[in-house]
């Protein structure tokens, strides 16, 4: 098994990781806090994909039992990610609430300006 075939057996993971890196870049490079939270959302969704992808079996069906099918994809990651999505939106909402309180206190949501104002005082 050469490196080339190996790449095509894993290309979906590569795509997932590109998404993850994009999210990470937004979180590190951008100072705007809402943008940072959107970066976190990107990171989260890439983690969802990373969990769901190994559970897929080529030729399998969704895990709803029926007499006509025998191969099902793995239900366990689906359960974990299902709850993680809802929890994710709840935590993002908490983050947004904190951001809007920061906006009320400082008048800005840019990280650099907030740090500059803290240094002035």
């Amino acid at each position: 098994m050469g490196g080339f075939e190996n790449f095509f057996a894993h290309y979906n993971y590569v795509a997932t990781i590109v998404l993850m890196v994009a999210g990470l870049y937004i979180v590190i490079a951008r100072g705007n806090m809402i943008k940072k939270l959107i970066g976190l959302m990107l990171f989260q969704t890439s983690v969802y994909l990373l969990y769901i992808a190994p559970g897929k079996i080529i030729g399998g069906t969704p895990p709803i039992l029926d007499a006509n099918f025998t191969i099902y994809s793995n239900p366990l990651p689906h359960v974990l990610i299902l709850t993680a999505i809802v929890v994710g939106v709840a935590t993002i909402a908490l983050g947004l609430a904190i951001v809007s309180r920061i906006h009320e206190a400082y008048g800005t949501i840019e990280e650099d300006e907030i740090i500059a104002r803290d240094d002035q005082e």
Binding site: P62, I64, L82, T83, I85, V86
Partner: peptide
């Protein structure tokens, strides 16, 4: 119980 769905989806 029989198709895709459940409390989380329905709640949303």
């Amino acid at each position: 119980d029989y198709g895709p769905g459940g409390g989380f989806q329905a709640g949303v």
